[in-house]
């Protein structure tokens, strides 16, 4: 059998490769503490993937490492291993594994985990990012878009709305670095972002719009917290955006051909 390249594990490995600049800079600046968090996240994800492999014959995916990286980078600081494991277990099992594993999930498990940690343990502070880490997200996005594993239109939609907000003078300077990292790590995930061209532009625009909305109206929240809340709400709205785009596409074709 002649085979092409783009099966699930190839995409997962490509995603991992794309996030490598971001991960390396983050580990460089975070040191041993960052590595320890990442290690706990990877172990916990590996355990749950193994449980689902045995219980439901679900093949595990390398994408779990990407999820672990996103969780480790964005989780509240000083949680301790127990709370982290609790949050990851809830987010990964309920957000991904019960739906059939990576590729069949409707929300990003990292987004669910981080939201859960934010709601469940509000006393812990959210992380900030050094400038080089923020900049390292650019090559990550570039590799993702160039290899076609990250939807360029989501980035485009988000940057368009963010640019418009800047021009209109919304107070987005403080939230922008965290929102950019969350955009690259969570929102452009190929599985849970929108799948149609128009839907992707709307998806990115909705995320950036929500971030701007929170930045203007949500006092006392940390930038990462706002960005994660925006990412969660956007990913819940994504199926609707796709539905709108597909309905419009079908209507356009019917108008052109008189049938579909």
């Amino acid at each position: 059998m002649m085979k092409g390249l783009w099966d699930r594990e190839t995409v997962a490995l490509m995603l991992l490769a794309a996030y490598m600049p971001l991960a390396l800079f983050w580990i460089w600046f975070g040191g041993g503490a960052a590595l320890a968090t990442l290690w706990i996240a990877v172990l916990c994800l590996a355990f749950w993937n193994f449980v689902f492999l045995l219980a439901r014959a679900q093949p595990p995916s390398v994408a779990a490492v990407v999820t672990a990286l996103a969780i480790a980078m964005l989780a509240p600081e000083g949680l301790g291993a127990l709370r982290l494991v609790l949050g990851i277990s809830f987010g990964v099992v309920m957000g991904e594994l019960v739906f059939g594993g990576w590729g069949r999930n409707v929300v990003n498990p990292a987004t669910v985990t981080l939201s859960f940690l934010g709601f469940g343990f509000p006393g812990y502070g959210w992380p900030g990012f050094d400038d080089p880490v923020v900049w390292a997200a650019f090559p990550a996005a570039l590799i993702g878009v160039a290899t076609g594993i990250m939807p360029a239109a989501v980035l485009g939609g988000a940057l368009l709305v963010a640019g418009a907000a800047l021009v209109l003078g919304a107070p987005v300077a403080e939230v922008a670095p965290a929102a950019w990292i969350v955009l690259v790590l969570l929102v452009v995930d190929p599985v849970t972002s929108a799948s149609t061209s128009l839907g992707r532009w709307l998806n990115g625009g909705a995320y950036a719009g929500l971030v701007v909305f929170f930045a203007t109206g949500w006092s006392g929240a940390a930038p990462v917290q706002m960005a994660i809340a925006a990412a969660l709400l956007t990913s819940l709205a994504t199926p609707l955006l796709d539905e709108i785009a597909i309905t419009l596409w079908i209507a356009k074709r019917r108008r052109r051909h008189g049938r579909n």
């Binding site: 092409g4 783009w6 699930r8 679900q58 093949p59 059939g100 590729g103 076609g148 599985v191």
Partner: peptide
């Protein structure tokens, strides 16, 4: 690797 076929299709540019 072989359990749980068919695998989900990941949306990509390809």
């Amino acid at each position: 690797t072989r359990s749980g076929l068919p695998r989900p299709v990941i949306p990509t540019a390809a």
